[in-house]
């Protein structure tokens, strides 16, 4: 009993504990700089984009599939929105039309994977390459900047009081996705499919349909993230989303360790992204050179996952 109690705690809360330790460490080293309200608000803004793209990834991983096209989907989203803005279309159109397009691309991803029962890994890798081509076709390969109206930056730069709109959007999306996964039939069905596709099918769940929905929602989230990046920086880089692709999987994987069942979940994804974001924030505040930041961040990701596995004890 005594032996297993700390193990159980480690297993269930290991990752959250790691996050707490990181926050505590930074707070002790630089209490005046790190541990301030301004900085915490900053952190929420800095992780907001990663969290949003990772929430989409969480959905696809909850049905036990992968979408490797999230990075280029985000880049495409930004480029499409920026190009529409340059054309002088109303802002609502600039943001909603790309979202609709991404929904269709996601549907296509899901349909191919579910209908032909091919590996999502390969399918979406192919889609990612296709999308990079489309970006090139649309933008000629260059960053879209010239002629973007000021109003395009509204979503990415507005603040409500001291709190950036992006942070609020992040909280809204996390709550939305948490509710979707935990409290709707859709979420329950995603988890059922992710747990055992054959059982889900025999239990009368339309596996193809729900997988396709997961892919479509994931693509929309990637697109939304890409558009918000463009809105925030006031231009659309053709590779803006690429950097988020691996990070989002890191966030979701760390997030899986938050759940006792080891499955992807919205709260966990938030914790995962927070660990990555707070490390980047804190280490920069310590004015640590970038290469040291990489070494420390990578090391902590590995440690977090090991700690969680170790918590499983001899039942493994």
């Amino acid at each position: 009993m005594n032996r297993s109690a700390p193990k159980k705690i480690l297993q269930t809360y290991g990752t959250v504990l790691a996050l707490a330790v990181i926050v505590l460490a930074f707070s002790l080293i630089r209490p005046d700089k790190f541990c301030t309200l301004t900085n915490f608000i900053n952190i929420t803004r800095q992780i907001s984009l990663l969290v949003m793209i990772s929430l989409g990834t969480t959905l696809v991983m909850s049905v036990n599939e992968f979408d490797l096209s999230v990075g280029s989907m985000a880049s495409l989203g930004g480029v499409m929105a920026a190009l529409l803005a340059v054309k002088g279309l109303p802002m609502a159109v600039c943001f909603l039309l790309p979202a609709a397009v991404s929904f269709c691309i996601g549907l296509l991803n899901g349909w191919i994977v579910a209908r032909f029962r091919v590996l999502s890994f390969i399918t979406t890798l192919g889609m990612s390459t296709v999308l990079s081509g489309v970006i090139y076709l649309l933008s000629g390969g260059a960053t879209v900047f010239e002629g973007i109206p000021k109003s395009f930056s509204f979503l990415g730069t507005t603040k409500l009081g001291r709190v950036p709109l992006l942070s609020i959007l992040m909280v809204v999306f996390v709550v939305l996705f948490w509710f979707l996964l935990e409290h709707t039939t859709l979420g329950r069905k995603f988890y059922a499919i992710g747990g055992n596709e054959e059982t889900a099918k025999i239990a009368g769940i339309r596996v193809r349909k729900y997988k396709t929905i997961a892919f479509a929602l994931c693509a929309v989230m990637a697109c939304v993230t890409g558009m918000l990046i463009a809105s925030r920086v006031g231009s659309a880089n053709t590779t803006a989303g690429d950097g988020y692709f691996l990070q989002s999987y890191a966030a979701v994987f760390i997030g899986c360790t938050v759940s006792r069942k080891g499955i992807p979940n919205a709260a966990g994804t938030l914790v995962g992204a927070a660990i990555l974001g707070i490390l980047a924030n804190g280490l920069t505040i310590l004015q640590m050179p970038s290469y040291m930041q990489n070494i420390i961040t990578g090391g902590i990701i590995i440690l977090a996952v090991i700690a969680q596995r170790a918590g499983h004890g001899d039942a493994a």
């Binding site: 988890y191 059922a192 747990g195 055992n196 059982t199 025999i202 069942k261 499955i263």
Partner: peptide, 21 residues
């Protein structure tokens, strides 16, 4: 194990699988 249950989900989720709607 392969076709009738989802081992990683709770017993409750398994029982409600077909009737969730």
């Amino acid at each position: 194990r392969g076709k009738a249950m989802i081992g990683n989900l709770s017993v409750r989720d398994n029982i409600l699988l077909s009737s969730i709607d």
